[in-house]
């Protein structure tokens, strides 16, 4: 089972820096060969190829309006009814997630979004990193347990 953790965002914009911060934390953590860690940056629809050739994709990104207070939240794109998002230069994760079932040939991977609502503080990003490792750990024998994740 191949899992891929894709951290999305812009490290130069505080409101969008959560994904890169989680990437920084996970990059310092030993991961099994069956887990790829990817700095997705601002690539948007250009990340589509990374949803091929694996069984599970965990997307880490800043989110807004998904929980009332700051913190981490797991979102399942398959159960997120929504109006179609139009493509644009700003077309980000929403468009990408909607594109997957229409564009990729089956089997498409299981996709989970680890969202960070509110400020990307170190404790919150550590929590998100631990969650990512939990999500891939059971299937991949991840040697790096959540409690051992240190600050990025």
């Amino acid at each position: 089972m191949l899992a891929r953790i894709i951290c999305i965002g812009n490290p130069f914009i505080a409101a969008d820096a959560a994904g890169p911060m989680v990437y920084g934390i996970l990059a310092g953590c030993p991961l099994p060969a069956s887990v790829n860690l990817v700095d997705g940056g601002l690539a948007g629809l250009r990340l589509l190829p990374l949803f091929e050739g694996c069984n599970q994709v965990i997307v880490v990104d800043a989110v807004e309006g998904f929980r009332a207070d700051p913190g981490v939240i797991i979102l399942d794109p398959a159960t997120m009814p929504s109006a179609p998002v139009d493509y644009g230069h700003q077309a980000g994760l929403a468009y990408l997630l909607q594109a997957i079932p229409h564009i990729l040939d089956p089997p498409v991977p299981e996709v989970v979004v680890v969202g960070i609502e509110g400020p990307a503080t170190v404790p919150v990003c550590r929590q998100a990193a631990r969650l990512c490792l939990d999500l891939v750990g059971s299937e991949n024998g991840c040697p790096c347990r959540p409690e051992s994740v240190s600050a990025g």
């Binding site: 800043a62 994760l93 929403a94």
Partner: peptide, 8 residues
């Protein structure tokens, strides 16, 4: 590039 509730 935030994912917002405007999108979902």
């Amino acid at each position: 590039h935030l994912l917002t509730t405007d999108d979902h």
